[in-house]
Design a protein around this nucleic acid. Structure first.
Lengths: 345, 345
DNA sequence: GAAATCTGTGCATACGTTTGCACATGGGAA
DNA sequence: TTCCCATGTGCAAACGTATGCACAGATTTC
């Protein structure tokens, strides 16, 4: 006959269901004696409140969703996502909120899944990780006035900052890339290639901007041949490097938009017999734990991934609990970590 | 006035709520004309079924929980958990199930959170990652006849296999450790140390058994001095190595229960000026992506982590959907990956 | 031509809570 | 005494959906 309900408890304790509910809620108007009897009955029956039923009436599931840009199966192969998840978790602990991962495949599905998660009231709010230029999903979310915090920033199809009402937390991608470039320029490099991810990812777009900014500030021309693009995998990093080495005028340094691209490039360079950093300097992005262990170790822009997650969670929770969230747009600073792949041993 | 409900749709379409419900469910008894009108009304109102309300009556949330042994904030620092999550996700995609991560802190809380997740009917079932000797949580779950699949195996306080009714999927820890030992023994090592994790983790217990088995089969004595124990962190791996090097008779090889311990040990050995593998051979466990990148690269026992997750998810889903799950206890094989930390370059 | 079956829909009820309102009791102030 | 307020509890109505049962009309079966 299934688990016991609040009615069963009420019967045993000789009170009404409402009273039991109030005991659970800690309502101070319940007398000490009644409280005791109710608690005893709950223990007797091994009663546990039915979260779903409760959600139905309170209109809150105390659950937030995490939506990854790529299907979770792919996403979690990159250490970025576990790390952002850790950040979120650190805030959710103790707040009594749980985290829901929507499992769906394909890009379009992912979009649909996110909206459905919200509209079906399965979750109270959503943390979105990264976005595309002119992202339709974000447009829909803003229109719905959904409880969303974006990790990244919303951008129009032209790259311009968009949707001023949206809550988001980002790192300083443009200047991080510029700082990485200044590091390479300071080492005397003049021919620096850029290995990019999918061009419509906003963070890729921004890092490319930083690359170009630094070039022009150094009085160097932008050479489209020096920019290669692929998916964010080691394979594509290696592939990009092959192309770059085939150029009549080889680059002497590489800035990659993600560590996995940089690692792939580094391995390919090794295979070609190039010495790093003397023949080729390499810089990555994200400070993947691997980068500290490679030989040579990899110089990389350290993004505060954990903090991005934590901040996003704090902002979302604040919003859900009706607290004013100010500012509702935050930029966290990155920091370049110089290692052997640019400065030698 | 909030989002629209099934009643609103019914009104617009000129039918009863039940009919709308049946259209959504794809009930074949609804005439084509009615279906069309209902669908139009749903589109008009931008109607989305309320998942919570639905769950209340169907008694299923179509959500499964993932419970990590340590608080998620810690757990996800080890690549094992993202990988098991990927495996789970790969099965859940397309099945329409979502994954809930309970965020709670502390060990005792974790236990409570898991039970509460199930008893509050927040989730339909749970995947549990790793267990302890004589685990109380597992005892409680078995007693509740909860829908649970354990990644690992249930063990009594004495290490014996327990709870024959429990569903679980494990890898062959004992023999994996034995194989790793045979590899080292085959290379001529006779004094082999074992860096262990917390002794009451079942997988640590099992790997230690494999170590001892291999020793005795090789006719070697077990020397308790050669076994060090700590938490599963690089720090504790380094610490363990320091102790081992301080022994009057140093080990010539190390088997560590997890790659992070092995990495810590390797780094500490480097600092001491030891050459690997000539002065000291090292073997780890799990095939963490880092291990392929270190210099020297790390020999390690590759556990099919992704498959463990996928299999656990398949078993749990099968059980939830009333399909017979046979066998309900599975062991997946590991495989040693030989790299430079044992065989040189 | 009557009976049986099929097709399409509505009525009620149930799922397990929370919560606004009402009400009974008791004590203190006027 | 009368009125008012504080205290403690119950009633009943939501929350939004699914589904067994009933039933009307159309179609088939013998």
């Amino acid at each position: 006959m299934g688990p016991s309900t609040i009615v069963d408890v009420a019967k045993i304790a000789g009170v009404s269901p409402s009273t039991v509910s109030r005991v659970i809620a800690g309502n101070p108007r319940i007398s000490a004696g009644t409280q005791e009897r109710v608690r005893a009955a709950m223990k007797d029956l091994d009663y546990h409140p039915h979260a779903i039923a409760r959600s139905l009436v309170t209109r809150s599931s105390r659950t937030i969703g995490l939506v990854t840009s790529r299907p979770a199966t792919q996403a979690f192969a990159n250490p970025f996502f576990p790390e952002v998840l850790r950040g979120i978790g650190s805030v959710l602990e103790g707040e009594g909120y749980n985290l829901l991962l929507s499992a769906s495949r394909g890009e379009e599905n992912e979009r649909e899944a996110c909206l459905s998660l919200l509209r079906s009231r399965h979750v109270d709010g959503v943390i979105l990780t990264s976005s595309r230029l002119g992202d339709k999903l974000i447009e829909a979310l803003v229109k719905d006035e959904a409880n969303v915090v974006l990790i990244g920033r919303p951008a129009g199809i032209d790259g311009a900052l968009a949707h001023p009402s949206l809550h988001w937390v980002n790192n300083d991608n443009v200047s991080a890339a510029a700082v990485a470039m200044e590091h390479l320029l300071g080492l005397g490099h003049r021919r620096i290639a850029f290995i990019n991810g999918p061009q419509d990812w906003v963070f890729c777009y921004d890092r490319l901007q930083g690359y170009r900014t630094a070039l022009s500030e150094a009085g160097l021309d932008f050479d489209p041949q020096l920019v290669r693009q692929g998916n964010i995998t080691q394979q594509d990093g290696a592939r990009a490097l092959e192309h770059l080495l085939a150029l009549p005028e080889r680059p002497t340094a590489i800035l990659a938009v993600d560590d996995s691209l940089a690692l792939g490039a580094m391995e390919a360079a090794h295979k070609r017999g190039l010495r790093i950093p003397s023949d080729l300097a390499i810089v990555g992005f994200n400070d993947d734990p691997i980068t500290a262990w490679t030989r040579p170790s990899l110089t990389t822009a350290r993004i505060p991934v954990f903090d991005l997650g934590a901040m996003a969670a704090r902002m979302l929770l604040g919003r859900l609990q009706g607290r004013p969230v100010r500012p509702h747009q935050v930029i966290l600073p990155s920091q370049i970590v110089v290692r052997e792949s640019t400065k030698g041993i």
